[in-house]
Amino acid sequence: MTMLEPGIYSASASVHELAGIRAFVFERLTTQGLDSNIAQSLCLAVDEACSNIILHGKDLNASRLIIDVEYSNGLCRIRIKDNAKTFDPNSVKSPDMMSYFKNFSYGGLGIELMRRIVDGMIYEQADAKNQWNTLLLHKYIHSPRN
């Protein structure tokens, strides 16, 4: 783990980094005045996003995650950059939870949790100009969903 500068956190793409990532996001959001319950739910969204990147990019060595967090004017913006395989969470369909329970399915709920917590997810894949895939999560704090 490395704190590159205040508000930016860099970690290897390993599940063992998740607790540190959550602690970083929670601290950044609450020190900027965000309610701790909302900060906790955003930590979960970030955990799910990072877990997916780690899971889908696990065959690439030395992949990294860079996370930066901003909260101002009622808007939380959390940017997660990775250099693992391209994976757009928006490409995953929402499950029908009643069928999910009826069939005792398991797995595949991380992206659905993210959707239910944040107000938007914007994904930009790496290209020739930019080596990083970027997932931007945003949440409006004064929205009726809070």
Binding site: R22, S51, Y106, L109, L113
Partner: peptide, 15 residues
């Protein structure tokens, strides 16, 4: 704390 990874373990065995 629990994430979907934890929820998934309960779902894996409940049936």
């Amino acid at each position: 704390y629990i994430s979907s990874a934890g929820l998934g373990i309960f779902m894996k065995h409940i049936d």
